[in-house]
Nucleic acid binder design. Structure first.
Lengths: 290, 290
DNA sequence: TCGGCCATGAAACATTTGTTGCACGAACTG
DNA sequence: CAGTTCGTGCAACAAATGTTTCATGGCCGA
C-alpha cells in the first residue's frame, strides 16, 4: 500500500477530508481554504469565525495523524514559509532544484490547484444551476483558452438537454447569435485576465436582451462580471507556472452541469439514457470487456 | 497626534530603529529580518532565538506606537497576508451553509476533485514533458468530452511552439493525419471509460509509425495505455455526480504544458512573447486600465 | 561623589491558549 | 427494542502566552 507521497500537511488534509466525520470535514475545509489564518490566528479565533467548536480543531489534527493542533499548525507554518537565504532554523529543502526540479514543479502546481478548488464558493454555483434549470435556452461563451471550458460545459449539458444548449458562434459568426438572445434564456461567459473584447460584447448583448447572465471569472472586477446575475469565481493565477490555470474553471463547469442535471430529475435522467443508447448504437465506444 | 502615514509596520519599524535603545534596536532588527517567524512563533520563542528578553518585544512594540506586541504582530500578519478572493471575515459562512442539498453536492464534488489532484503521480508527467520537449512534432487526440482537454493542451503548447503542434483531425478527416505520424514525433491521446474506437485507432497508428505515445487516461488498463511510452493517470470517477470528471485530466495537461515550457528555456520564452505581442497588436484583449 | 535617570533582565501576574473528560443524542447492530 | 458505538458540544483543566512590576546596574550632570 504505497502512500501517495505526503508532500505538504495540506495535501494530507485534503486527501483525508472525504473520509472524515461531517463536523471535522467542515473544519478541515475551513483550514484548507484559510491556511494562512490557520497559521496566524488562535484556535479559538478560527473556531469563532468558522462557527465550530474549538475542540474540533484538535480532533481534526489528531484525525490526520498529528499529536495535536499545535503540531499541525507548526507543519502548516513550515510549509508556507517563504524561501530565504539565511534560514531561521537550518532546514534545507532538497526539492526546488536538482535533477528532479521538474517533478517539484508538477507537485507544487497540483497542490496549489487543489488548494484553489477548496476556495471556490459553492453557494453561487448552486444558485447559478437553478438559473440554468429554468432557462429556456443556454448560450455558452469562452474564447482562447477558455474555449475548452465552454466546450466541456456545452458537451455535458447537451447530454441531457440536447436542443437547448449551444456555444455562441458555434454555428456561424458570433454576431448572429448575439442578436438571438432572449429574456428567459441564460448566457454563460467564461473568461479571465487578459479579457477578450469578444467576450465583453457577448456580455453587453446578453444584458441588452434581458437574458440571465452567468459569469465564470477570476475576479469580481472582470468586465464580464459587471451586471452579471451570477458570478462564479476561481483562481487562475494561484498555481506556479506561466499560463493561467483553468482547473478551477473546469471544476466549476462540471459542478454546474452536475447540479443542473440533478435539478432536472427523472426527465434529465431519461434524456441522458437516450443519448447514451444512441451513442452505443453508433458503436462509438469500445465494448467494456476486451 | 497626526501620525506620519503608516505605510507598513515594517517600514515604521525601520524608520524608528536608529532612535531606539541598543537592545531594542537588536530586537527590532531581528523582527525585520525574520518577520515571517515574528507572525507565527510566540514572543518567548523569538526571544530565545534572538537571545533577548521577552519583555523587549513588548517594549519595542510600544516604542513604535503600538499598544503591545499582539497589536504589532497583528499588523505584521495583515501586511504579509497573501491576496485572496474575499476577506477573512466574509469568507467563513459562504460555504456549506444551511441544509442545502445542491450546495452540499458542489462542496463534496470540489473536495473529491481536490483530493484526486493530489493523487496524480508527478514523475510520469515530468518524464512525458521531456519526451514532448525533444519531439519534432506533437499530435493531440481527444474525443467527446476529452476534446476540451485536447484543445486546451493544443492551445497552450502552440503559444510557444506554434507550428509543431496540432490536433488530430483538426484540419480534415482524422484518417489523413493518422498516416502522417513519423518516428521522432509525439502523439498524445486523452481518454477514459467508455473509450472511443477512434482514439484506439490513433493509438495503433502511432504505434505502427514508431511515434512516442503519451496516454492521459483513468486506468492503466485503458486501451490507449497499451504500449504507451508514458501513461499519465487521473481519477475520472472519483467525484460524486453523474459525469466522469475531467478536472484531473486538465490539471495534467496544464502541468505537462508548464514543464514542457520550462524545458524550452529562453527559446520558448521568446516565442511566447512573440505570440503575446501579436495578440496584443490584434487588440484581442481589453486594455488593462478602463 | 552623589542623585536622578534610563536601559535591562528576572520574576510574578492575569489572560488566553490548546487540551481533555464528560454527557447527551443519533446512528447502527444484534 | 435494547445495547453499543460514534460524533459532537460544553466546560473545566493545565500549560503557555503577553504584560507588568520590581530590582539592578550603568551613565551623565551637578
Amino acid at each position: 500500500m504505497a502512500e501517495p507521497a505526503k508532500s505538504s500537511p495540506l495535501s494530507e488534509l485534503r486527501i483525508a477530508l472525504p473520509s472524515l466525520p461531517m463536523r471535522l470535514q467542515e473544519v478541515g475545509r475551513f483550514v484548507a481554504a484559510n491556511d494562512y489564518d490557520a497559521t496566524t490566528r488562535s484556535m479559538r479565533d478560527l473556531a469563532a469565525v468558522a462557527g465550530a467548536d474549538p475542540a474540533a480543531f484538535t480532533r481534526l489534527a489528531k484525525a490526520i495523524g498529528y499529536s495535536g493542533w499545535d503540531e499541525l499548525r507548526a507543519a502548516l507554518t513550515e510549509a508556507r514559509r517563504p524561501l530565504q537565504l539565511a534560514p531561521f532554523s537550518v532546514r534545507a529543502k532538497s526539492r526546488r532544484h536538482g535533477p528532479n526540479a521538474d517533478v517539484a514543479l508538477v507537485t507544487d502546481k497540483l497542490d496549489a490547484e487543489a488548494a484553489g478548488l477548496l476556495r471556490i464558493p459553492a453557494q453561487p454555483i448552486a444558485e447559478a444551476a437553478r438559473a440554468l434549470h429554468i432557462a429556456k435556452r443556454i448560450w455558452i461563451t469562452g474564447y482562447r483558452s477558455c474555449r475548452s471550458v465552454a466546450e466541456l460545459l456545452n458537451y455535458e449539458l447537451r447530454l441531457f438537454r440536447p436542443d437547448q444548449v449551444q456555444i455562441v458562434g458555434g454555428s456561424g459568426p458570433d454576431d448572429l447569435d448575439l442578436g438571438a438572445f432572449r429574456p428567459g434564456e441564460a448566457v454563460i461567459v467564461i473568461g479571465f485576465l487578459p479579457y477578450t473584447h469578444a467576450s465583453v460584447r457577448v456580455v453587453q448583448a446578453a444584458y441588452r436582451a434581458g437574458a440571465t447572465l452567468i459569469a465564470i471569472a477570476d475576479s469580481v472586477a472582470a468586465p464580464m462580471a459587471e451586471g452579471a446575475d451570477h458570478v462564479l469565481l476561481f483562481e487562475a493565477a494561484s498555481s506556479p507556472g506561466f499560463f493561467p490555470s483553468l482547473t478551477g474553471a473546469i471544476a466549476i463547469a462540471q459542478s454546474l452541469a452536475a447540479v443542473t442535471f440533478s435539478l432536472g430529475g427523472t426527465a434529465a435522467k431519461k434524456r441522458l439514457q437516450d443519448t447514451e443508447v444512441r451513442l452505443a448504437a453508433a458503436s462509438t465506444y469500445v465494448s467494456e470487456k476486451g
